[in-house]
């Protein structure tokens, strides 16, 4: 399914952390294509491996973590084969990243202008003066009022929303082809979140870049993404275009996640929770990783790990229910039957 229109192709990525208790497979065989000019969301709860996936793309995994296998092709070249020096030319230049906490990502002892200029000087070789005037342009682009004064200010003089705008300005300073946004609005208030999401969307359209948006918020996904990968315990369990995912979610985990969400735009009597907890890294179930919490789990689910299977509509799901080997109720409809199955 890979083709020229993909800016990034992740194949069977495996990233593990080697700790005292043994190996923790944080990302376990993730494959994902990022089409040009589109936004792909990676959704999952804490520990699902969504952030580690993006850190692996940037090659930012530090000891005791290691990328064990797989490939990450960016414009035909495997990023995992690059030297650190080659990677530095790509990082912040062709592929940029913004993080959740804008305060800890900015250096408190340098001015905003210096921090944006640094990126421009390194990657584009502009003089200090030119880089600074480009910084002012960038601040203007991300909607910071009176940018000429702001470049002289320090991060603590800005509010949280402003700081995140500065982070975006730094990330976009070199016109990256791919922007990785790791929970970019989680630390922000909703009204500020709305501003930042609109900004990312608008810039993606006008600059024609691709975006990987990592989030736990299904609302954010619905509003900004074209495609969505749902991750659970280090694996992609469902991949679909955003409309199909919300209209016809296929994986029981996706359905459970959607049912757990309290909505502000409708009344619900009781939330249909997913029972239990995410499995601990050292205690991964042998079969499907979601089986212990899945209301539909059958014999095959607890014994054998399902592959990511292509469905009729061209999307993907990692669940035995959609395979010929399914040994449970053949008529089962995950979305409609979730509640009844859960209460049994």
């Amino acid at each position: 399914m890979s083709n020229d229109a993909d800016v990034l192709q992740i194949q069977d990525l495996q990233t593990s952390f080697f700790v005292d208790d043994g190996e923790v497979k944080a990302v376990d065989g993730v494959s994902l294509d990022i089409p040009k000019g589109k936004t792909v969301g990676i959704v999952g709860e804490s520990g699902s491996g969504k952030s580690i996936t993006s850190m692996s793309v940037m090659r930012l995994i530090r000891n005791p973590g290691r990328i064990k296998g797989g490939s990450i092709h960016y414009n035909g070249e495997d990023l995992l084969q690059k030297t650190e020096k080659q990677m530095q030319k790509i990082r912040g230049n062709k592929i940029s990243m913004i993080f959740q906490e804008p305060m800890t990502s900015l250096n408190p002892v340098y001015t905003i202008g210096q921090q944006i200029s640094e990126v421009i000087q390194i990657h584009q070789g502009l003089s200090k003066k030119d880089a600074l005037s480009k910084s002012v342009e960038m601040l203007e682009l991300v909607g910071i009022p009176s940018p000429k004064d702001r470049v002289k200010q320090y991060p603590h003089e800005l509010s949280g929303g402003m700081r995140q705008r500065v982070m975006i300005a730094i990330a976009l300073a070199c016109n990256p082809e791919l922007l990785i946004a790791d929970e970019p609005t989680t630390a922000l208030d909703v009204t500020i979140q709305a501003q930042i999401l609109d900004l990312i969307n608008e810039l993606r359209r006008s600059l024609g870049m691709s975006v990987i948006l990592i989030t736990h918020d299904l609302g954010v996904v619905a509003e900004t993404c074209d495609y969505v990968a749902v991750m659970y315990a280090g694996k992609v369990v469902e991949y679909a275009d955003v409309h199909t995912l919300f209209k016809e979610p296929k994986h029981p985990y996706t359905v459970g996640l959607m049912n757990s969400l309290p909505r502000h735009d409708m009344d619900q009597d009781e939330l249909n929770v997913i029972e239990g907890n995410v499995p601990k890294p050292g205690e991964m179930p042998e079969g499907c990783r979601f089986a212990p919490r899945c209301p539909f789990a059958s014999d095959i689910c607890t014994n054998e790990l399902p592959d990511l299977m292509e469905t009729e509509d061209g999307n993907q799901v990692r669940c035995w229910i959609y395979s010929e080997k399914w040994d449970g109720d053949p008529e089962v409809n995950v979305k409609n039957d979730y509640q009844t199955a859960r209460s049994q």
């Binding site: 709305a194 999401l197 299904l218």
Partner: peptide, 11 residues
């Protein structure tokens, strides 16, 4: 405030 909350429904 209400209008700023993203709704989990792309349509």
């Amino acid at each position: 405030l209400l209008s700023a909350i993203p709704v989990p429904d792309p349509s």
